[in-house]
Design a protein around this nucleic acid. Sequence first.
DNA 1: ATCACTAGCGTAAACGTTTACGGCGGTCCC
DNA 2: GGGACCGCCGTAAACGTTTACGCTAGTGAT
Lengths: 362, 362
Amino acid sequence: MPDIAIPREAKARLSEASLRRKPTINDVARIAGVSFGTVSRVLNDAPDVSAATRQRVLQVIKDIGYRRNRAATALVTRRSTSIGILSAGSPRFGPVGTLMALENVARKKGYATTVISVEQPYAESVQAALDTLDDIGVGGIIVIAPVVDMAAAVWSAACRVPVEMIAAGASSTPNVFTYSENQELGARLATQHLIDLGHTDIAHVAGSMDWFDGRVRKRGWEAALRDAGLAPGLCLEGDWSPRWAYETGLQLVREDSIPQAIFAASDHTALGLIRAFAENGIRVPDDVSVVGFDDIEGSDYFLPPLTTVRQDFTALALMSMEVLIGAMEGREVDRTPTAPTLVVRKSSTHATPPRVQPPKDT
Amino acid sequence: MPDIAIPREAKARLSEASLRRKPTINDVARIAGVSFGTVSRVLNDAPDVSAATRQRVLQVIKDIGYRRNRAATALVTRRSTSIGILSAGSPRFGPVGTLMALENVARKKGYATTVISVEQPYAESVQAALDTLDDIGVGGIIVIAPVVDMAAAVWSAACRVPVEMIAAGASSTPNVFTYSENQELGARLATQHLIDLGHTDIAHVAGSMDWFDGRVRKRGWEAALRDAGLAPGLCLEGDWSPRWAYETGLQLVREDSIPQAIFAASDHTALGLIRAFAENGIRVPDDVSVVGFDDIEGSDYFLPPLTTVRQDFTALALMSMEVLIGAMEGREVDRTPTAPTLVVRKSSTHATPPRVQPPKDT
DNA sequence: ATCACTAGCGTAAACGTTTACGGCGGTCCC
DNA sequence: GGGACCGCCGTAAACGTTTACGCTAGTGAT
């Protein structure tokens, strides 16, 4: 029951390929009638080889399908063309997106990536992972450290190669430098949006304070409130899960202490909240405005579609790779954090009754 | 503004580490007072070394922090301890979960993984990725091929090392063998659940037929219906997106052709459907039962919580790694597909009026 | 014609391992 | 006491590159 026709020649090609040993630089040299030194020179774009010879060698390389053996190169040059990525095992939204993007830009820059994911307790697993990466011979390491404990483990670990940490709002140290999205700005954007809508009682259903994301998003919410001269609202700290948010929403209903507007630390958090409200006849956004963070897939089809904050993982990956490779090659690279954007949908609306009629904009 | 105290000794440790060149097998030999041959023997657990000497060497290795240089080993043994993973760029739910699990079990088996993700058009990108992996020197490759086009590209590509494809319901070929979750069973489970609830008019809002997942899930739905002696229901083929499902739901409402029950090809699809219904006063599950597929994070907090099918990615990864490594080492490994499970929540309920009163179970 | 210089190329050594082989004591058996 | 054997260990060669150096033939100046 093949779904697709299988090309006849495929099998033949395979056996042919596996029989023939991988050609080496010497094979190329012999066929091209030069010494291996000359081949090496054309491989490395070195001077001291005539145009004609270069052409000929290049042709042979293409003909016999020569590819340079990376192990041999790494062995003799002592530098590697691979970089390691250390990530937390948790498949939460942010980390995974960053991971994919990272691999992409690394490959485009000629580096292979090998990723290792670690779990709690971080004290041991992080050092072990760093060692494994060192074993493999990576030239640099990017660690995606969403939780504070993991970052701490990285800070106190020993490592021979440059280490860059992607951790929102964490500080750089002499041996580990840090890069991140400006999530505090994202949180400010979300909160300011609510303020602009005329809300004055804006709560924050936060993520975990064990996560940098949780800390920084809270900080942004606080700052926006402060800058607007508003009193700090209610802040409930949780664990990112829809379940916890749901319980929290239920509690808010029970205590009849639902605020005008809520900045939820993540879309999943918003999801739990909204369900708790919906089950109790409280309408979003009519009775309470909610804005999330992450713009996960499907958040535009929640009930109602969620106003949220989107991060640009591709840009983040691009910049941080730039920074790491720069460090590996001894260059100094400018690093300004990338900025997230607010995407306004249906879960947030004007305060009712509006204290100040907001300027009308179609 | 450091969030965490930075250990004082960290900096000192780094410079110490980076100054000292990586110790080699010769360093170990010299310090232990043996020849490098002996050290090599203890490293490889070879015989012909006395217990006392082995102890001494092991101690030195630990003392000076020796770690074997993988490039050198790979060079001389011509076999590698790394495996390549080829994945589609699309960050859809399934692929990512599989990816993480794969890396985990590979590492536990002593293999490093390097993943490359490819994009359309697959004809070129797949061959290029395979070549890159070959460059790096992987000993085997697992490709996660959710879409048919990508699988086709793999089938017709040339590759020196064993290739295993994870693709639901695709067939094995001489050079590419296939492994997958039994998703057809998952779809049958979901459909059977609806049948057990007394529904007879069961539609399928399908995924894309360009995806194996889409094809196989549809096949399972058809089979379950057939086995129950039910007429084939309505089948709408889409693209997995909540947006498309939403439009489709709207159309169903417009035509007043909403079935008793719907098996949605994914949770995201279910999400779009439910929103379309909710906006038009059609209640789930009272007016229409919906079951999804994937059990994405948060699906237990949709409105209503979604009945869905969960796959065991960890088991899948474990099995398929077993199979690949077996192939790399020339062993033959048993491969029976892993099975998904149904998780019943609130989006599905009895048919109304129930044609047959279903047996009462608390 | 001689010299210095250079463009183009070849050669040797090194990178850190593994593997095949050879050697050297000691023990056992006749 | 002399061979055979074995446990333990050292040595050389190889893996496929890069890099430093050296050589040769041609060119231009004197």
